[in-house]
Design a protein around this nucleic acid. Structure first.
Lengths: 229, 229
DNA sequence: AATATAGTGTGTATTTTTTACACTAAGTAA
DNA sequence: TTACTTAGTGTAAAAAATACACACTATATT
């Protein structure tokens, strides 16, 4: 988002693609703009980088202001700076993606005045986006597709305790293809970063699945080894 | 590089890690600063982004000013913006790497006044670098290590016609490990992006090797398929 | 002409990884 | 007790990765 346009040569902002998973769908958080340009359009949340904060801090602040969440996994992935990308002047923006597990829509905080509303929208049915935000989103999705194959980031979209089926579901949604159940389980277990718990899924009307947890200590020991899907 | 510091809230620059290969070693281009801060230190070449140029254009211009070269493969890879990274104020910098084949040091142009000299230095013996440029370089090397495994970028470091041994040499230098000759050739040929020429290496005092060329058309046909080393 | 030198170019067997594929077990609800 | 729904498991075949050594060829040297 780039509403504040002081008369400087250039403005430096951060835009965020916040991916959320509610157990069913992969969604991103969009805000409906209440100001020109692109009034009434949907846009990625973003803001100007403060003068005393690091880039990562700035991204975390933007996310916090919108969702009230802290400690979320975020990663910088690309800078967009075409001279024409903002109709009112030069705005260079740095894109971050974040991965968030959604427990209902309660995560949403009141939103600042420049937005009418903020909403989690499924990535399978996104509206037209303001500015070059479609490009920013596309590149973000591409990045997490690539990264989920090599880094243990899928867990960031799930609750602390999860079933293997849920984990597979995340992979399938991000990669955009179905995976074989037996092969998936074989592989994910062979990485040795999961801890099997003495606990079962609850509240389901069928056989309850075993719960697992991502084991950071085991993962730390693998340092250097490549994970690959 | 960040010499110009107008009294703005923040300054936005680009720094470049220019990787060059001379047939023997992998080198990067560094400049020796002639101004405070970090006077007499070696630093990555860089400059302020102009108000009417895109980020890629800006990076290309910086490279051109220093080397006289155009049409070089460059890629943006990370933004560095810690509040303390520049002693005189807030400077956010976007890092690019470039891959260049060196044909002797003739590529070097006269250098602007803020630098005493510019030099290609082997990456195996780099001096201490100004600002946070060591961090920027480290991340750049990491990036090309990763990218050379999946994208056909090694050719950018070689002349148009090259031998398989030269190509292997590039991979070994970038990856920092030796590769098996037979397996390397088997694999690289199986990708199907090389065109074998009716031409041999010249001027060597031993059996001349066959020359190859990177075949962009064949590569275009592979779109979507993953290359992997 | 013979020899030394230095890098080119090639094949196969073994191991590891990836893929394809289908049924039984367990728990809940009616 | 039966129907329903998802959990959980193994094996065989194919593909990919690895390990490994020697003969060939062009030139330079004597």
């Amino acid at each position: 988002m780039e509403q504040i346009l002081p008369h400087l040569d250039s403005v430096f902002s951060i835009d965020c693609v916040l991916f959320g998973f509610d157990g069913k769908e992969l969604k991103i958080l969009l805000i409906e703009r209440n100001e020109e340009p692109f009034k009434d359009w949907w846009a990625l949340p973003g803001n100007i980088v403060g003068s005393d904060e690091s880039l990562d801090q700035s991204a975390a602040r933007i996310l916090y202001e919108l969702t009230g969440l802290r400690g979320i996994y975020m990663e910088q992935y690309y800078a967009f700076g075409d001279p024409g990308r903002h109709p009112q002047g030069r705005v260079i923006t740095l894109a971050y993606y974040a991965l968030i597990r959604l427990g209902g829509d309660k995560d949403l905080r009141p939103v600042s005045t420049y937005a009418k509303q903020a909403n989690w929208l499924p990535i399978t049915a996104l509206p037209k986006l303001a500015f070059d935000h479609q490009k920013i989103y596309d590149k973000g999705l591409e990045k997490i597709k690539r990264r989920i194959k090599h880094q243990p980031i899928a867990f960031e979209l799930l609750p602390e305790k999860f079933t293997l089926t849920q984990l597979q579901h995340v992979y399938e949604l991000v990669l955009g293809k179905t995976l074989d159940k037996r092969n998936f389980r074989k592989k994910i277990v062979s990485f040795g970063v999961l801890k099997e718990l003495d606990e079962k899924q609850k509240g389901v009307s069928y056989r309850a699945a075993t719960l697992y947890r991502f084991d950071k200590r085991k993962y730390a020991k693998l340092f250097g080894k490549e994970i690959s899907f």
